[in-house]
């Protein structure tokens, strides 16, 4: 009994409920005439697409900058990487790699200034991050119209200038990662080996980073900034590094997402992208100042699982698509839960 209790406390009620909910959806799937292999296939694909974006939460959480609501800034770096590469007509794996390179450059620059800004507003990072994300998306809306891109596949058809709202990556790097070493499990389940491998590689990279001297310093800054300072760590510098990492990861995340999804979504596309990622890592068991790679993987799987399963299963069971409502309630409810929970821990101290 004690074991079970401890397990529940360790694992957290919220996650158990969400896990059970997902499990019941999978059990109900055959009853609702939903093909289980299609469901799994979708879940795996969406897991791969979202995972790096969720991973982008980790560095900032670990360094005490809170949940990265400013993820859209990183996504913009990724969009810039993708559009610039398309402009240069680079295709396939080379194209994607080049896009990642450019993304990293932009992400580093953006992240540097974003990090400097967050250092000036310690204590209100999350609110400001949200609005930095929003403002940058709104600013880029103007830029997408004005930047001198020429590739006809990207700009509006009718002779004008300005990029389209959605640009297909077909013929460039559509499914470049997905198709690498992919194999067919069943009729409608193709395992996207390449993407999953890449995602795991990114996770491994971040896991490794937190095992280095620099990564340890970053963790200490998040865990107790005063301790870190007293141990001779430059707190502000560590925070900037973490923000740069998060921003770059956000950019790479969107590239992975796009190569599977097939489209680059510009303009208001990245606007609300931070929220699912934030919700996912919280569902995975992270708190506002502690997150692990396990949180990322578990959380992304649970969250994306619910997103794929609810529409299909619920739809055929009660003939209503309530998935959107469930998504909103679960993801935002999870964020609120996390916000109120941290306070309790601090009060106890």
């Amino acid at each position: 009994m004690k074991h079970i209790q401890n397990f529940i406390i360790d694992f957290g009620w919220a996650r158990i409920i969400i896990g059970l909910f997902l499990l019941s959806l999978f059990i109900l799937a055959p009853v609702a005439d939903v093909r289980i292999d299609t469901s799994i296939s979708d879940t795996v694909a969406r897991f791969g697409m979202a995972c790096v974006l969720v991973l982008a939460m980790v560095p900032m959480i670990q360094s005490g900058c809170g949940l990265n609501f400013g993820l859209p800034l990183g996504i913009i770096a990724g969009l810039l990487g993708a559009t610039c590469t398309m402009e240069l007509e680079l295709k396939g794996l080379i194209g994607l790699s080049f896009a990642m390179l450019i993304t990293t450059v932009f992400g580093t620059i953006f992240g540097f200034f974003y990090g400097k800004l967050l250092n000036k507003v310690k204590g209100s990072e999350m609110m400001i991050a949200t609005y930095v994300g929003f403002s940058s998306v709104a600013f880029m809306c103007m830029m997408w119209l004005l930047l001198p891109f020429k590739n006809p596949k990207m700009i509006w058809g009718y002779g004008g200038s300005g990029l389209r709202t959605t640009i297909t990556v077909e013929g460039y790097w559509l499914h470049v990662l997905n198709n690498f070493l992919s194999f067919r499990v069943s009729e409608s389940f193709v395992f996207p080996t390449g993407m999953i491998l890449f995602v795991l590689f990114m996770c491994l990279l971040i896991w490794g980073f937190f095992h280095t001297k620099l990564g340890s310093a970053l963790t200490a800054v998040g865990s107790n900034p005063d301790f870190a300072k007293a141990s001779g760590v430059d707190i502000d510098k560590m925070r900037v590094i973490s923000v740069i990492l998060s921003t770059v990861l956000g950019g790479i995340g969107i590239l992975v997402y796009q190569q599977s999804f097939g489209f680059i979504q510009l303009y208001m596309g990245p606007f609300y992208m931070a929220f699912p990622a934030v919700a996912a890592i919280l569902i995975g068991g992270a708190s506002i100042n502690k997150a692990t790679i396990t949180n990322v993987i578990v959380g992304t799987f649970l969250f994306q699982g619910i997103l794929t399963m609810t529409p299909s299963v619920m739809n055929s069971l009660i003939h209503t698509d309530m998935s959107e409502v469930i998504r909103i309630i679960v993801s935002n409810g999870m964020i609120i839960y996390a916000m109120t929970r941290v306070n309790k821990a601090r009060q106890k101290k």
Partner: peptide
């Protein structure tokens, strides 16, 4: 607790 230790490590 404030400066000396990382309580959660």
């Amino acid at each position: 607790k404030g400066v000396g230790l990382l309580l959660d490590e």
